[in-house]
Every structure is written in structure tokens, then in C-alpha cells.
């Protein structure tokens, strides 16, 4: 009950936020929502189903590029001018299809092997995005069409512009994504994921189609990544192939690791931390004497944030490596 009240208060707070805070916080909040959705997808795959994947950036890219091409109005590039929400949905579906296409590889490989193979997907994806210039704008990238109209409306005497409306879209998507994920993780499918994470032989002995479920985990996670990619593209205003480099995958892994693998709420918290830290450090650099200007050779806000991420990942894994034992297939027995 207590939790419910807290949750309700949180929701109300988030709903009224646009009345009180400025653009900077709304934009940051939208970015957090985008990253949160992606992180939820990865925590299902890596935390619940136990598959290490560094391919997330690729699926973000698929979602983002699909959205840009379908909703875009750029005359030089492939632009279909669809309604943004339809284009966003198509982005999610196409990312899921891309996940399905990779699933024959994903379903056959385990743990570490999948982790490395998934790097390949990102590298190949980069190449494809660079090559498919009419679609992506190539090296220079392309502008992202807005997900809401720019027209200002006034509600309760407060003018609502694109950022305010966008905030609600992002928030609604995040809530929906979290709810679906929670139901999935707690339901039959989630239990199957956990079983095959703990031991594939054991899972298959109780009648779980291991390869099908591994593929399913991969597809679900790519659809989340696809939506995250759409919103991420909207958040940063324009995307280029380099927006979806391996580094992005690594940051998503950081989010879900510091959020506690397998936890939906933790993934969102991790996404908030990883997204907000560099932005906030930059914003308040004036008050933080140890931070240097970019280009000066000193430790900039972005360096500082990355140091924190790296150390946080190491600290979490070191202190919680007991919890990570669950990755070890129990069928192989204790480490010998």
C-alpha cells in the first residue's frame, strides 16, 4: 500500500512538472525516458534472460533511422512524411525484425560468445548506416522530425510548447514500457527466461524451447531498443551513424549493471544516472573547480562522468559478484 501511495505521488509529480520547471530539465527528462526504455529492454535480455549483449546501439539505430525516414520531410533524403507516432511504431517493429533476423545467431550462442558476436552487429550496423546515405544522410546524418507539433497551446494559463508536450509523450512511453516489462518478467515468459539463464539443460528438461525463448528475449529487447532509438533521435535533434557506435551499447550496459541486472526500476534509475550525470556536471561545471574546459587537456565534465561510470561498474560487479553467480549454468556444477 505504502509503495502504491509513493508511486502515485511520483506520477503526479511527473505530470505537473512541466508547469514548474524549465526547458533544460524537460529536455533532460525526455532523454532519461528514452534511455530508460532502452535500458529496460537490455535488463530483460541481460539480467532476466542472462544473455550478454553489446548490440543495443545497433537496434537503437534501426529504430531511429526508420523513424527519420518514415516521418521525415527532408527532400534530399528518403522521406515519406508519415505521422510521427505511426513512424515511431514502425521503428519499433523494424528494430524487432532486425532482432529476429539476428536471432539465429543469438539463440545459438551463449553468454560471452554472444557478447562478442553482438559487437560485430554494431560494427556492421555502423557500416550499413554509413553506406545507406539516402536513408541516413551518411556521415553527416540527418535531422530528426519532431514527435509532437511545434504549435503552442495554452493549458491552465501556461503556454505548452514542443518540449512540454514531448515530455508527456516520453513519460507515457516510459510508463507503458515499464508496465509491459514488469508483467513480462513476472509472468510465464519471464520465468522461462530466468530458467534458461540459470541452466539451459534444466530449462529444456522442463519443456522450455530454449532457442525460441532466447530468440524471443532478443526480439523483445530489440523492440525496446527501437523505441529508445526513436526517442533518442528526437531528443538530440539529428542523428548520424556515429550516434549508434559501440560506445552507446557500453553505456546501456553501464545503466543496467549499476541499476542491478534484471530490475526494471533499477534500469530506469541507471538510465537516469548515466544520462543525467554528464549533462549536470557540464551545466554546473562553474561550481565544480576540479572540472576543466573541453579541449584544455584537463578532466572535463564528460571525462569525469566516464570515470564515475567505469568505477561504478567495477564497484558494483566486485561487491555483487555473489549475485552474479546466477550467470553460471548450474548444470556445470560449481567452478572446478
Amino acid at each position: 500500500m505504502y509503495r502504491r501511495i509513493l508511486l502515485g505521488l511520483g506520477v503526479v509529480l511527473l505530470l505537473v512538472l512541466p508547469y514548474y520547471v524549465g526547458q533544460f530539465w524537460l529536455r533532460l527528462g525526455f532523454s532519461v525516458a528514452a534511455a530508460g526504455i532502452g535500458a529496460i529492454g537490455l535488463t530483460i535480455l541481460t539480467g532476466t534472460a542472462g544473455q550478454l549483449s553489446l548490440a543495443h546501439a545497433f537496434f537503437l539505430g534501426v529504430g531511429a533511422v526508420t523513424y527519420c525516414a518514415l516521418a521525415g520531410t527532408d527532400a534530399d533524403l528518403v522521406s515519406l512524411g508519415w505521422p510521427p507516432l505511426v513512424a515511431a511504431l514502425a521503428g519499433v517493429l523494424l528494430a524487432g525484425l532486425a532482432g529476429l533476423a539476428f536471432s539465429p545467431v543469438a539463440a545459438r550462442l551463449r553468454h560471452i560468445y554472444l557478447g562478442i558476436a553482438s559487437i560485430g552487429l554494431v560494427v556492421i550496423g555502423q557500416h550499413v548506416l554509413n553506406t545507406a546515405a539516402p536513408l541516413t544522410g551518411g556521415f553527416n546524418g540527418r535531422l530528426t522530425p519532431g514527435i509532437v507539433s511545434d504549435a503552442k497551446v495554452s493549458i491552465g494559463g501556461v503556454p505548452f510548447g514542443a518540449y512540454e508536450k514531448q515530455w508527456y509523450v516520453g513519460f507515457a512511453f516510459l510508463a507503458l514500457a515499464a508496465l509491459l516489462a514488469r508483467n513480462l518478467v513476472r509472468g510465464r515468459v519471464g520465468r522461462a527466461f530466468v530458467l534458461l539463464r540459470d541452466s539451459e539443460p534444466a530449462a529444456s528438461s522442463v519443456g522450455i524451447a530454449v532457442q525460441r525463448y532466447k530468440a524471443l528475449a532478443f526480439v523483445v529487447s530489440s523492440m525496446y531498443a527501437g523505441l529508445a532509438g526513436v526517442l533518442y533521435a528526437v531528443a538530440i535533434g539529428s542523428v548520424a551513424p556515429s550516434s549508434f557506435a559501440l560506445d552507446v551499447s557500453v553505456l546501456y550496459l553501464v545503466m543496467v549493471v549499476i541499476g542491478g541486472l534484471g530490475s526494471v526500476a533499477g534500469a530506469v534509475a541507471g538510465a537516469a544516472a548515466v544520462t543525467a550525470l554528464p549533462v549536470l556536471l557540464q551545466e554546473y561545471a562553474g561550481y565544480l573547480p576540479f572540472l576543466a574546459e573541453p579541449g584544455s587537456g584537463g578532466v572535463t565534465a564528460s571525462h569525469a562522468a566516464r570515470f564515475v561510470f567505469g568505477v561504478a561498474v567495477i564497484a558494483v560487479v566486485l561487491t555483487r559478484s555473489g549475485a552474479l553467480h546466477r550467470f553460471r549454468p548450474s548444470a556445470l556444477g560449481s567452478r572446478s
Binding site: 550478454l52 553501464v254 587537456g297 571525462h303 567505469g310 561498474v313 560487479v317 559478484s321 555473489g322
Partner: peptide, 28 residues
């Protein structure tokens, strides 16, 4: 210290190490 942990946990630890070293070298 974490030699009894699962290989995936060890791999994630090295990703953390990579972030730290790579950031410092990039900076320099």
C-alpha cells in the same frame, strides 16, 4: 578477488576497467 564469479561478471568488470583506462588515454 572475484575469481569464483561467473565469466560474464568478470567480462563486465573488464568493461568497467576499459572505460576508465580508455577515458584517461583519450583525455591525454
Amino acid at each position: 578477488p572475484m575469481r569464483d564469479a561467473a565469466p560474464v561478471a568478470l567480462a563486465i568488470m573488464t568493461i568497467g576497467v576499459d572505460i576508465v583506462i580508455a577515458t584517461e588515454l583519450n583525455r591525454r
